[in-house]
Amino acid sequence: MGLPLQAHDVVLISGGPALRSFEKFKKASHDKYWGNFIDSALTRAAELKKEQPREDQIVWLVFRPSYTSRSSEDQQDYLKIIEERGAMVGLTPIYFDNKDQLFTLLRRDGSRDKPKISRLEYFGHSNKKCWMFDYSNRVDGGALEPLVVHVDDLEKISGSSFTPKAECVSYGCHSGEEFSQRWRMVVGRPMVGAVGKTDYSDGGMPKLSNGKEGSWVY
């Protein structure tokens, strides 16, 4: 009788949507649909459930403040909808309100309570320098410092929180142009990211935008 396999966590992170009051009149208008980063993460969760070892657990982290403010704007209870959609694939969202809370949630020691991370995937707004959880939500066209994971913040994420063969993916725009490389250097695990923009408008998993010579890179 062998020892039970060590369980790991698969972490999916959903950033928040922009407010339409900021975006409505722009040429490149973001987030007409509020749930791009929710639906894509849940689509991926359903895929991963078929692939991953049974003992591993999917942990779904959702940036709450942007959904709260978008709820006020659209007069819909999006947090309730998020929880209902999560339940359809057997997931309960774990909310975080700023990047410090995210860093705490990512701090793992391999114990039963804090298993190491075997996979991490991000769905949300980004550019080559950072993940922007609240893009165009509290300020027009930008994101507030406590709600941005900038490349200079990556030293707050320890590589020892991940398994040696952990895989990471950022499905945000332009992550493959610098963020991925800095992640690999600082966190010590490879991260796939996009060169160019990513497009969530067709629903499900994001894809590289048409018309640009984009690619997925490490």
Binding site: H150, D152, L154, S158, V187
Partner: peptide, 16 residues
């Protein structure tokens, strides 16, 4: 620019 020189470029990963 929002960030300076990448000080991790010549250092090992943050595995501690």
């Amino acid at each position: 620019a929002s960030s300076g020189v990448n000080r991790f470029a010549e250092r090992g990963a943050n595995v501690r």
